[in-house]
Simulated assay, not measured.
Amino acid sequence: MSEPKRVLQLITELRPGGAERIVYELARGLSGERYAVEVCSLRPATGAVTGWLKEAGIAVHSLEMTRKLDLGAIGRLRALLRREAFDILHTHLFHANLIGRLAARHGIPPIVLGTIHIAERRFRPWHFWLDRLTLGPRGIEVCVSEAVREFTRERARIAPERLRVIPNGVDLGRFAPYADDAVRQAARHELRGEFRLPPETRVAVAVGRLEGQKGYADLLEAWARLRNDARPVVAGAALIVAGEGRERPALEAQIRRLGLGDRVQLPGHREDIPKLLAGGDLLAFSSHYEGFGLALVEALAAGLPVVATAVDSVPEVLGDSPAGRLVPPRRPDALAHALAETLATAPDRREALAAFARARAQAFSLPKMLNAYGTLYDELLGKRRDSRA
């Protein structure tokens, strides 16, 4: 049997996030007889994902970038690629895509592909120009959703045949225990105990970095409207936003201004997302723009209904599942109405929605994603062999 092909996954940093989770799953899931996968971050490898990778036996490198204009990082990456003789360089997110292509422009390694994880709605026209320029006429990019593919085709003017779609995958096995009613009830009891909530409290959970993209300011405005609802289960509901990021001070100030201190909590980054979601009653997803939305699939896998903004990939991920309720973005009034109606759902309907949610999550299983990337790697390696024949 031939030696496994060596693959380097390159990403900006290793703090917990959607793209970082996918890099971890690719490294862990593809390493074996066919591929030997390692990971490299542009920034110092100090995030929690570093620990996950090392625990899984995955080698982690860092280019030790501490500023964006560290052009020496290109040379450090080029040296790493030559020294370790990687066969494939797989990059993730804009800065890693750019630096990876520049480092490998002389053909080492022979195969370079990137994954686009976001429909970047901020004003960054140079991103699209540089993406198109460095991709070249034969390069391949993977988009994590059809929405990202269409967005990239329009904004970066990249030919459709250069854009492949591989939806993100979630390890559904992490959520399987919570399909058992006793396990789920224990998670609900533990969640309310941890956050000092009455046992009957309905709880909405939001998961994601505390960044402007996630629209948490809208979510807080919507949540403030619920306290005037005539239904006690709605007026007394609690919101838990799990994540960390730059918006924390602003969100904490908004919570104080709106008088939500007893109804909204920001516990920071959590490692126990399956249990946290299983203990909740719904996922609140208020993003202004997205690429995929791993939290959507995680919530579905946990059996939760979802109230989400209808942006980019979100309708694509939820499909026509009854477990998903879509609202316009940046509309706290519409978000509040959808949250209230979902919080007030009758118990028998909640059980039906849980079954619908778990069924929809199956469309985004981890093996499907790993098989798709493995097939793409094989295709690119095969084309490389044919070109040398």
Rank of each mutant, 00 (worst) to 15 (best):
R34D: 13
R34Q: 12
A36R: 15
V37P: 00
E38A: 14
V39S: 00
S41E: 05
L42V: 15
R43Y: 15
P44G: 05
P44S: 07
T46R: 14
T46D: 14
G47R: 06
A48E: 14
V49S: 05
G51S: 09
G51I: 11
G51F: 06
L53S: 08
K54P: 01
A56C: 12
A56E: 11
A56W: 13
G57R: 06
G57D: 06
I58Q: 03
H61M: 08
S62V: 09
L63M: 07
L63H: 04
E64K: 05
E64F: 03
M65E: 11
T66S: 09
R67G: 10
R67Y: 12
L69W: 14
D70Y: 09
D70H: 11
L71G: 14
G72A: 09
A73H: 09
I74P: 05
G75P: 08
R76C: 04
L77Q: 11
L77K: 07
R78P: 05
R78C: 03
L80F: 08
L80N: 08
L81D: 11
L81T: 11
L81A: 09
R83N: 12
E84Y: 08
E84G: 05
D87G: 13
I88W: 03
L89Q: 03
H90D: 05
T91D: 10
H92K: 03
L93V: 13
F94C: 03
H95V: 03
H95M: 11
A96P: 03
L102T: 09
L102F: 07
H106F: 12
G107Q: 12
G107M: 06
I108W: 09
I108N: 12
I108L: 10
P109D: 12
P110H: 09
P110L: 05
L113Q: 00
G114P: 01
G114A: 13
G114R: 01
T115C: 00
I116M: 01
H117A: 00
H117P: 01
I118F: 02
